[in-house]
């Protein structure tokens, strides 16, 4: 699973394969552009037919895509399997909720506080977990999320098991104009812009020296210290940035749905994020975004037709992993290479 990473596979630190890597980035950016174009067409059609449900569902898919991207940064790029990423997603959503409801209905303050909470919690989580490897790391992240979700579940002052409702609809001040979070198309476009910014930001990070060390930690950990880099620093950086990403995505959730509850930190959210990354394509960053759209759509559509939808989704997941071991992006990559008449 960890080897199947089309985008960052060509170990540039040790091989002069730079050309291929740059090409892969450009191609990946093209997938991002295709995604943005498709999203804009979708918005146009949805507004034209007067839809609200599918726009809001798509917004939710993008929010979960942000979470999945954070899992991809850990798993696909740095090689750390987190089974508790929902912890930071949930913390971000609670932070944003408490700010919006009790402090000030300001989008930017809520996002800033969520990021601060994500950074602090991410640093604490990193200290606790990054020294462990493989399955031990996975279990520690899983355990941290379980513990915090139980604490939230039992804390009456933040709603306990009932969660918090009544999060106000807010106006997002973008200097030139305002976006109302209750406007399905407006908020969708805002979230789209933010998630794509996160994507390009991450893609940029991976091209910086610090980002390349992250990739190196996954591809050849033993070699990294010889090059003068500290593995622990790299893992710490990856963990904190991933926590921030998840908290950022989480902070958007209550603006869309108007509530938070401890379930947002539960394992099914973390687990779904990992599945999303695997389906979309590990280590591609754009794959999780496509994956999230596919999974959110499947769940919503199949669930309407049969009560046995977990079986259908499980079977599809297995098929996808067997048929496209490199995820959606990997499959597209192979097709593209074949059409070009050469191997990728």
């Amino acid at each position: 699973m960890l080897e199947s990473t089309p985008l960052v596979q060509s170990t540039p630190l040790v091989q002069p394969a730079k050309l291929g890597r740059v090409a892969a980035y450009e191609w990946s950016h093209r997938s991002a552009q295709v995604f943005i174009a498709a999203a804009l067409v979708f918005t146009g059609v949805a507004v034209f037919v007067g839809d609200t449900f599918f726009l809001r569902l798509a917004t939710e898919a993008l929010i979960y895509a942000g979470l999945a991207m954070s899992v991809d940064l850990l798993l696909g790029v740095t090689g750390m399997l987190s089974l508790g990423q929902a912890l930071f997603f949930g913390l971000g959503s609670y932070a944003s909720t408490l700010v919006l409801k009790h402090v000030t209905p300001s989008f930017w303050v809520a996002m800033a506080v969520a990021l601060a909470v994500g950074t602090v919690a991410g640093a604490i989580g990193a200290v606790l977990s990054i020294r462990a490897r493989g399955v031990y790391f996975a279990l520690i992240t899983f355990g941290m999320a379980q513990v915090v979700s139980k604490v939230v579940y039992n804390t009456r002052s933040i709603g306990g098991s009932d969660g918090i409702i009544g999060i106000p609809v807010i106006k997002v001040n973008l200097l030139l104009f305002e976006v109302d979070t209750a406007s399905p198309a407006g908020f969708f476009l805002l979230v789209l812009a933010l998630v794509m910014l996160l994507y390009f930001g991450l893609a940029y990070l991976l091209r910086t020296p610090a980002g390349r060390v992250l990739v190196a930690v996954r591809t050849n950990e033993a070699r990294v210290p010889f090059l003068g880099y500290q593995i622990r620093n790299a893992r710490f950086l990856a963990f904190v940035v991933a926590a921030d990403l998840a908290a950022f995505a989480g902070a958007l959730y209550p603006m869309l749905r108007g509530f938070v509850s401890p379930e947002l930190m539960y394992f099914n959210v973390s687990g779904d994020a990992v599945v999303t990354v695997v389906i979309g394509g590990l280590g591609t960053l754009i794959g999780p975004i496509y994956g999230s759209v596919v999974i959110t759509a499947l769940k919503s559509i199949i669930g309407t037709y049969t009560d046995h939808y977990p079986i259908v989704i499980g079977a599809l997941f297995m098929l996808a992993v067997i048929a496209f071991p490199n995820g959606l992006m990997g499959a597209v990559d192979t097709l593209r290479a074949r059409r070009k008449g050469g191997s990728p």
Binding site: F53, L57, R257, G258, F259, E263, L264, N268, V269, S300
Partner: peptide, 15 residues
């Protein structure tokens, strides 16, 4: 799960 329930409820109300 409230996160699932709200999404399903929106679908039932709007679609």
């Amino acid at each position: 799960n409230p996160a699932v329930a709200t999404q399903k409820a929106e679908k039932l109300f709007q679609v």
